[in-house]
Computed example of a mutant assay.
Amino acid sequence: MTPAQRALSLLVRREHSRPELLRKLAARGVEPDVAIEAVDRMTEAGWQDDGRFAASLARSRASTGYGPLRIEAELSTHRLTTAQITAAFDALAGDGEADWPQRARDLLERRYDVAAFPGDPALRRKAVDFLLRRGFDAETAYGAVRALRTD
Rank of each mutant, 00 (worst) to 15 (best):
A26N: 08
R23L: 14
R61E: 14
E44V: 09
L57P: 05
A26D: 15
E31A: 15
R52P: 03
A35F: 03
D40L: 10
R14P: 00
F53A: 03
S9G: 06
S17P: 04
L22K: 07
A27F: 01
E31S: 08
V34W: 09
R61L: 15
S60A: 13
W47A: 13
L8C: 04
G46Y: 12
M42N: 05
L11N: 10
G46P: 14
V34F: 07
S56Y: 04
L25K: 04
E20I: 00
E37D: 14
P19R: 08
L57F: 00
D49F: 03
A45N: 12
P19V: 03
G29E: 05
V34P: 00
E44Q: 09
G51L: 02
L22V: 04
E37N: 10
E31Q: 12
A35Q: 07
E20N: 01
W47L: 13
G29L: 01
R23P: 00
E20Y: 01
A35V: 07
L25W: 02
R14C: 04
S56G: 07
V34L: 15
A54N: 06
E44G: 10
L11Q: 07
R18N: 07
A45S: 14
L21E: 07
V39P: 02
A38I: 10
V30N: 09
A54L: 03
G46D: 13
H16F: 14
D49H: 11
E20D: 12
R41K: 06
T43D: 07
E37M: 05
D40S: 07
A35W: 12
S17Y: 04
V34H: 13
A27H: 05
D40G: 09
E37Y: 09
E15D: 03
D49A: 14
T43M: 15
E15M: 03
K24D: 12
G29D: 01
A38S: 13
A35L: 05
R13T: 10
E37A: 15
V12W: 11
I36A: 10
R14G: 01
G51H: 02
A27M: 09
L11V: 08
R28L: 15
A7Q: 09
L10E: 06
D33M: 07
V30L: 08
E20F: 00
D33L: 13
L10G: 02
I36H: 07
D49R: 14
E31H: 10
E15S: 06
L11K: 08
R23M: 11
D50G: 09
E37H: 12
